[in-house]
């Protein structure tokens, strides 16, 4: 099977088979990351540009490492807010980068749809590294990769996604990805954090964390965006943490051996208790490790190097 997409803009249009192809491709690259010399020549002579309009350490570094381990040339480009103020549009910025013969542009942008807008305007392949509240497809794919490593089978796997689903691109991408591969998805949080009609994406909604956690195999905690305080989404961090924070006590409500995931960066003591974050159940650092392999797989598939 070959990968027929030119861009990776969202998980929504991918089939279960395509998702599995990405995970299988990542398998071979995970092995590379364990070698003494962590490099293969697959993307030699190709140029990958990381175009990040939002601050990001983890995702940008992960893409950079992935591209370098494939022997691509990598440029990191983080337009400051001032260049936006100067009036250059996203499309103009991207066309300038394209004029330098970029093969793949990895875009992180605060506006939903930015990657799609960009993909329409340039000839390079575009990878969405997070666009507003819309999607963060590589995060969902690395989450699936991690789950597959630990749980083997997605079918019937019960996953609770906890927190501010409305404003989370990670939640949207994971809901699409998990439901496509046969998992049973719950979303847990106050109604202020649930977007309109979320059940129509095939998930069940829970207002109460204890009920939402009962019997689940996987718990995905979302980062509480502290800057949203004062927007009437939750009264105080104290109350949010009491109602929706994951503690060791609550973890017992889940199935034995349940996994705890978090896309990072975590707020220790807010959405997740420190002992839970550091516990045996936590696969938070495996997610980071796998992120490089999964992104290598995606860069490889989009570069057409497999054809």
């Amino acid at each position: 099977m070959s990968f027929k997409h030119k861009h990776l803009l969202s998980v929504a249009p991918l089939s279960a088979d395509e998702i599995m192809l990405i995970l299988e491709t990542a398998d071979s690259f995970k092995e590379v990351s364990g070698r003494e010399i962590k490099k293969v020549p697959a993307l030699r002579g190709k140029t990958v540009v990381n175009l990040f309009f939002e601050p990001s350490t983890r995702t940008r570094t992960s893409f950079e490492l992935a591209a370098k381990r494939l022997s691509a040339d990598v440029i990191n480009f983080s337009p400051s807010n001032s260049s936006v103020v100067k009036g250059e549009t996203l499309l103009d910025t991207a066309r300038n980068i394209e004029a330098m013969q970029a093969d793949i542009i990895v875009l992180r942008h605060p506006a939903a749809g930015a990657a799609e807008t960009l993909a329409r305007g340039v000839k390079s392949s575009v990878i969405n590294a997070g666009d507003g509240w819309h999607e963060h497809p590589t995060q969902a794919l690395l989450d699936l990769y991690t789950l597959r490593e630990k749980k083997r089978n997605f079918n019937g796997l019960r996953v609770a996604i906890v927190g501010d689903v409305a404003h989370s691109r990670v939640a949207r991408s994971n809901i699409h990805a998990l439901t496509k591969v046969g998992a049973e998805v719950r979303v847990v949080g106050p109604r202020t954090m649930m977007p309109f009609g979320i059940e129509r994406l095939g998930v069940r909604m829970y207002d109460n964390l204890d009920e939402g956690l009962r019997g689940v195999d996987v718990i995905m905690m979302l980062r509480l965006q502290l800057e949203r305080q004062g927007r009437a989404l939750y009264p105080t961090i104290r109350e949010y943490s009491r109602l929706y924070g994951l503690t060791a006590e609550r973890l017992k409500l889940a199935e034995a051996g349940a996994l705890v995931m978090h896309p990072g960066p975590i707020n220790r003591g807010v959405e997740i208790a420190p002992d839970v974050a550091d516990s045996f159940s936590s696969v938070i650092l495996d997610q980071v490790t796998n992120g490089v392999a999964v992104r290598m797989g995606i860069l490889y598939l989009l570069s057409g190097a497999n054809q």
């Binding site: 929504a12 939903a112 749809g113 666009d131 507003g132 509240w133 819309h134 999607e135 691109r169 949207r172 977007p195 309109f196 009609g197 979320i198 129509r200 994406l201």
Partner: peptide, 12 residues
């Protein structure tokens, strides 16, 4: 604000 805005991740 509706199911389409939820899918697109746009504020409604």
């Amino acid at each position: 604000e509706g199911f389409v805005s939820t899918q697109l991740g746009l504020p409604g």
